[in-house]
Simulated assay, not measured.
Amino acid sequence: MSEDRRLMVLRAIVQDYVQTSEPVGSKALVERHHLGVSAATVRNDMALLEEEGLIHAPHTSAGRVPTDAGYRVFVDRLSAVKPLSQGERRAIAQFLEGAVDLDDVVDRTVRLLASLTRQVAVVQYPSLTRSTVRHIELVPIGTSHLMIVLIVNTGRVEQRVVDTGHDLTVAEGEALVSRMRTAINEVAAGVPFTAAATRLRRIVGEADQADRRAFESVVSALADALVEEREERVVLAGQANLARSGADFPRSIGPILEALEEHVVLLRLLGQLGDDPDLVSVRIGSENPVTGLQSTSLVSMGYGSGSERVASLGVLGPTRMDYPTAMASVRAVARYVSEILDDDRST
């Protein structure tokens, strides 16, 4: 029973410190929370929590604040991620449903997360290693030009225009476009990017001599599009929220801002999630391998099409974070983005 009570005391300390940013004393805990014990008992529990390294005194006072280990116990002991209200869920759905393409989805998502949590929001574009070609469409425009439309399983669409060197307005040209469309989709549709580029190059050599120039033009343009898609990117919003938490960074927020500018660092952190699409990951303080981010916490989750995670999103802020709200917001937004990608795939 005493262990359960100590966890209640720890939870109360975390909640009060997150709300007030002031060290929490036993008297305040008794007044604010229904712990059912005296202030002396709470002081004893706090002493034990301090011995266990879960709270500490930032200076000589009766108040205590959680340590990274204390936050970790608090997060791990959350019985479940609290659900957002119906109104919050409706607002998220309406905000994201208006997106017109993947770029718009990412832009809306990162702004939404920053607004919901008042933290720095980070959204990763779908990774090349997890992206596949959904379909390639060829649309004649003008006499000899062809628009190539590359549609990715993550909802991204790339377009290129090439000159085929053939008159596409006559029956022979229409038949050529049909042959290319069929051949290209047979080898590339449903195939990961890395394999699609290799397969597409192979069909050029297999094409009839008369068709080879047109095939070369189309395949070359597709190869360029696939290479551009390989760039791993993240988008951030809400960096100004760090300034509102200046007291949580006693030295400076400079190292944090510098780390955030290194997108490779953020990609590595987001990429260290497991493959469970329902898992909300919380990395607290010193658990972050990046020195500049060890005074922060990262709450993140994967999103994707179907059951496969193709990228991640999350929020980063001080360790004095409202973890239940951050975790609920990240989970809800990730699920809505996944639903959007699923809808795009089914249409």
Rank of each mutant, 00 (worst) to 15 (best):
D211L: 08
S131R: 00
A210I: 13
L113A: 14
I141V: 09
D107P: 11
F95D: 06
S178V: 04
G87A: 10
V105I: 14
S144D: 08
S127N: 03
V122S: 02
I151R: 05
V139Q: 10
L128V: 12
Q86F: 04
L146D: 03
Q86E: 13
P140T: 00
I203E: 02
E137S: 07
V149W: 03
R134N: 09
Q94W: 03
L128H: 10
L116Q: 09
T117H: 04
A210N: 10
A195M: 13
V149Q: 08
L176T: 03
A189S: 15
G173F: 05
R156K: 15
R134E: 06
A195I: 13
V133K: 04
F95I: 03
E172K: 09
T154Q: 02
R179N: 12
Q86P: 11
F193M: 05
V120M: 03
A214V: 01
V162P: 11
V170G: 11
R202S: 15
V105P: 14
V204G: 01
T154C: 07
S217Y: 07
A197V: 11
V106P: 12
P126A: 00
V139M: 03
V149K: 05
Y125K: 02
G87C: 04
E216M: 04
Q119C: 13
V110Q: 07
A171V: 12
F215S: 06
R213P: 08
I92L: 10
F193D: 03
S115L: 14
I203C: 04
T164N: 06
R160K: 10
T164D: 04
V133N: 01
G155Y: 01
R213G: 06
A183Y: 07
L128T: 04
E88R: 00
R90G: 11
Q159F: 11
Y125F: 15
R130G: 06
R181A: 15
D167W: 02
M147T: 08
H145N: 14
L168Y: 00
V162L: 12
P140G: 05
G165S: 02
R199H: 15
A207C: 09
T154G: 14
I184H: 07
I92P: 02
T109W: 05
I151S: 04
E216R: 09
V161D: 05
T182L: 13
E174H: 05
N185C: 06
G173Y: 00
E137F: 02
V110A: 07
H135V: 11
E216T: 06
T143N: 08
R199E: 12
D101N: 13
S178N: 14
R201L: 11
D211H: 10
L96D: 09
Q159S: 14
E158Y: 12
D211I: 03
D101M: 05
A207L: 01
F215K: 01
E88T: 06
R134A: 05
Y125Q: 06
I141N: 13
R213Q: 11
V123A: 10
R130H: 12
L96W: 03
A121C: 14
D103I: 00
G98H: 01
S127F: 04
Q159K: 12
E97H: 09
R212P: 15
L128I: 01
R108G: 07
R90P: 03
A175L: 11
T109A: 13
R90E: 14
